[in-house]
Design a binder for these strands. Structure first.
Lengths: 188, 188
DNA sequence: GTCTATACCCTGATAGAC
DNA sequence: GTCTATCAGGGTATAGAC
């Protein structure tokens, strides 16, 4: 019954990914959802409200990925590898990272907040993983896990950007393999 | 005399940086340039044409930075450090990397092309630098310079993204320092 | 080269009927 | 809950006068 609501959220998630916040119009959202004007403004107070809900929903969909990194099978380094090498829709870009280019998103706490939480949380998770790996000797010693965690997330985010510029997913892959080669303890 | 033309280009460069392609309107360009409608459409055939010229001009402004990396003072690693640590307007993001989130830019060869050239060229320059550094023993041996070069550019691009999400330039700095720690040969 | 007028569609929203 | 008006403004461009 409030199927319209969930279809609106889903089409907003898709359009934000494809077009960003500025490039996404209420009309386009309604059309893709197969829902009329009145319905949308019944469920949400406007574009911003709908976008905030859609972004929050998207960020919640990242939780399973975190769990796998934290508690998946394998050694810390293996879990990092699995996360970095997992299947991604590289040329479509990151569904949340891309939003942060948008001035309207960055200037609005309700829109930027959830993105910041995912990124900050990811850095925390990665830093923990690196520390674990250092203790077991798998990960290169003498590096700052927090710095390297920020670096790893940056490689993923920047990998999307560089791959899109060249229209070639291989650019992303190269960057990720570069990280893995550097993070492993030398001579293993 | 064709000062209007150069003012148009400059205001387009600024607006593309702040707002992206989709978010930049001809009207806004004209207002910021202090130029009327007719003038803009006299010098350029439309928004796309103007944006293509502005992007090309922006990418040309990257050349001095390359030269410093290639032929600046210091060892290869010192030149890499200088490039990575140089003053940047971090929270404003990368003036060309941000454009690549835009579907209309990616789908248009005239807009994406110059960006691709700068990125591909940068990776080439960085890879050369890394090879030099490996020969002199400054840079960690046993890594693939092309992969690590792609990784370094990704860290810069992703560093902007992550810093904007957190609204804190320190995130960028941490990522960059992470790279430098990993790239240097261990025990030096 | 630059100006003003004009045009048409899109954006983001409100109002009120059903 | 959803539909159909309706609206003021902006986006992007063309036309023709100056």
């Amino acid at each position: 019954m409030d199927d319209a609501r969930s279809r609106l959220l889903e089409s907003t998630q898709e359009l934000l990914w494809e077009r960003g916040y500025t490039g996404t119009s209420p009309r386009a959202i309604q059309e893709r959802a197969g829902v009329g004007q009145g319905s949308m403004y019944h469920h949400f107070s406007g574009k911003r409200d709908l976008a905030a809900a859609a972004i929050r929903q998207t960020t919640e969909e990242f939780l399973p990925g975190w769990r796998a990194v934290l508690a998946g099978p394998g050694t810390p380094l293996e879990r990092l590898e699995a996360w970095l090498r997992r299947e991604r829709d590289i040329l479509r870009g990151c569904r949340i990272g891309r939003l942060v280019q948008d001035k309207e998103v960055v200037d609005d706490e309700a829109l930027r907040g959830p993105i910041d939480e995912v990124f900050s949380g990811t850095i925390g998770v990665l830093a923990g993983l690196l520390r674990e790996g250092q203790e077991s000797g798998e990960v290169r010693a003498g590096i700052d896990p927090d710095q390297v965690a920020a670096m790893i997330l940056s490689v993923v985010q920047g990998g999307y950007v560089v791959a899109r510029a060249h229209q070639d997913p291989e650019r992303f892959t190269a960057a990720v393999e570069g990280v893995l080669a550097l993070v492993a303890a030398p001579g293993r």
